[in-house]
Design a protein around this nucleic acid. Structure first.
Lengths: 177, 177
DNA sequence: CCCTTAAGTTCCCTCAGGGAACTCGGGTAG
DNA sequence: CTACCCGAGTTCCCTGAGGGAACTTAAGGG
């Protein structure tokens, strides 16, 4: 991958994006998490080139997001399953799906429903504060440098969000960031 | 974009991924939402090629995720700001960041903290059921075809998740991860 | 008058992705 | 025993998107 080594950047979005910011990875994870785990099934379902699928899968295995498992001895057959790390990508998929539903849904409605087995209802995912349970939005959060943040040139981690919003660059100069 | 027209697929993840499944889009949105809104600032901060940045920005404007605004008349200067549609990508970014923090954080800790202004605490985003507030996980949800779902070949929307997990394709079922 | 800044464009080049055929190990049907 | 199917990749060729760096345009500034 000749891509700029985003993994070096001190931003978790960048690190996650280095793996996940790919046209296919999200779709592969969706499929694997929903039970489409075999190479040919994935290739057929996604319409992805087999070459690229093989590359993505081995990358995902390397990253510890998937494991390649033998599911049958005779003839030997392998498939891919999500690790714990892989399953934790589920919120990302949910958020992506929710956004797609809100902004690109058919007039008929969303193509899929999510049933929460805990309460038995069809539901939508909401990103909330782990402490108080209120939904997190751009407007009610600020990013501050964390312990692992090495703030320096090229490592803009997550700037002063509200500062920028409270002083919109419309009139004067944009907030220096 | 010669990419397979994922937007046609009846899956919201695919639609969202068509726009968002790109090495740079997530980082651009992070920057714009955190106050880095000018072309040169983005180019410098991300280390992205100016050509690609211009292409991404106009795509994002086309999609209604960003707007190009004049922030200064003399000399005329433009910058980019998130629309409502763009701000609603925030949960996706949060989920990505959270995942990156959990799995790739420096030993020192995450590079950024999120302060929830509502309750005043540093927090983590959690994806919960809109009805009962419980966290949504792979294990406690199922996907069902929705009203807009045209189930057919190549349009595997979101399969029967738990069905697949309860009856994996192998003889001996792999240990639940 | 020349330099600088902001915001892009243009050019060239390489390499990742698409498409389709080929491989390889191991059935199963005749 | 041979011939024909899998499933799971690999190989080959070709196009085009991305990297890098220089060029452009418009407006100040010293």
């Amino acid at each position: 991958m000749t891509r700029t080594p985003l993994a070096d950047v001190a931003c978790s979005i960048a690190r996650a994006t280095d793996l996940f910011g790919d046209a296919w990875t999200a779709l592969i994870m969706r499929d694997v998490l929903t039970g489409v785990t075999r190479f040919d099934d994935l290739a057929h379902d996604l319409g992805i080139s087999r070459k690229v699928l093989a590359a993505r899968l081995s990358r995902l295995v390397e990253e510890g997001v998937l494991i390649r498992e033998r599911y049958q001895e005779r003839p030997p057959r392998e498939h891919y399953r999500a690790t714990h790390k892989g399953e934790e990508l589920y919120p990302v998929l949910l958020a992506l799906m929710e956004w797609g539903d809100r902004w690109y849904a058919d007039p008929a409605g969303p193509p899929a429903r999510i049933r929460h087995l805990g309460c038995g209802r069809d539901t939508r995912p909401v990103s909330v504060c782990a402490h108080c349970g209120e939904p997190l939005t751009v407007a009610n959060t600020t990013q501050l440098p964390g312990p692992g943040g090495r703030t320096g040139p090229g490592t803009q981690v997550l700037g002063p969000l509200l500062a920028a919003r409270e002083d919109p660059p419309g009139a004067g100069r944009p907030a220096a960031v």
